[in-house]
Design a protein around this nucleic acid. Structure first.
Ligand SMILES: [Mn+2]
Ligand SMILES: [Mn+2]
Ligand SMILES: [Zn+2]
Ligand SMILES: [Zn+2]
Lengths: 139, 139
DNA sequence: AAACATTTTGCAACTTTGTTGCATTGATTT
DNA sequence: AAATCAATGCAACAAAGTTGCAAAATGTTT
């Protein structure tokens, strides 16, 4: 695990710091996505809020994390697969946000469908976010 | 136009106030979606920020406006079609956010595609948001 | 392993965004 | 036009996000 984390940082030419290690570790240990606020809680006052903002920003730029849009004003972040590189994300999978437990899943196996657009519109990225009950909350 | 606006408010049993009329008017005159901040600007200090928050909230609850998720922490709002009612939205169309001019379009003609989910996940709502260049910015 | 150069961090100060309670104002009903 | 009820604006706050800068940590060179 620890090795994996170092690798990711090294590969992206990022210096290995406490906060970066800890935050990456959080994402590796957590099944779902995390919002800024979740990270603040889970790191327990250990790092400054500003550091967390900057770390997340760096990770997104480097292609280590991707963002998941939402209609509740709290962007969620999740680990990218290896194909993502600096400035070039390829996270074309569907995301699922549970209405009950709020867990956000990367459904890696479900790729986003084709979408036909009106004449003149040129797509760059397509986000598909599904809300509903997750497998733990459905019952 | 003015008639239309009164109708909408009346139909939803909302009292007809300056702010509600003005904000609805904004949405009718604007082709795309608007974020809270846009509305503040376009109404020019005329209404209290709190009033705008509450008006938007009311309109969403009543099925007059729907929200469009984004990954930039600013929810956009757009007019619903007539089928939407209190607590029951049916805005199952694709949204397009232009990377250049930031305009957000409701592509009413494009309905959201089917999405197969893993076993145990029960969908409630599906949001499809496309980023790219709009017909005015492409060229 | 020390000294140097370069990043990253934490703090402070600030801006922006969002929330809540309450008195005043405004809209609707009689 | 009075009475009733709902919506607004204000104040005071809480939460989220930004920026500049000195101090600390990291990586690199000797
Ligand atoms: Mn994902
Ligand atoms: Mn729409
Ligand atoms: Zn759940
Ligand atoms: Zn455009």
């Amino acid at each position: 695990m620890q090795a994996r984390i170092m690798d990711i940082l090294k590969k992206n030419q990022l210096s290995v710091t406490e906060s970066r290690k800890k935050i990456l570790e959080l994402f590796q240990d957590n099944p779902g996505a995390l919002a800024h606020h979740d990270i603040e809680l889970k790191t327990g006052e250990k790092f400054d809020r500003v550091t967390i903002y900057r770390t997340l920003q760096t990770f997104v730029e480097k292609g280590i994390l991707h963002t998941i849009p939402s209609a509740d004003n709290s962007i969620r972040y999740a680990l990218c697969k290896d194909e993502c590189t600096e400035g070039h994300h390829h996270d074309n999978h569907v995301h699922f946000i549970c209405d009950k437990c709020e867990t956000t899943y990367c459904l890696e196996a479900i790729t986003v469908p084709e979408v036909k657009l009106p004449k003149g519109f040129v797509p760059n990225q397509i986000e598909v976010v599904v809300n509903g009950k997750c497998r733990n909350c459905v019952k």
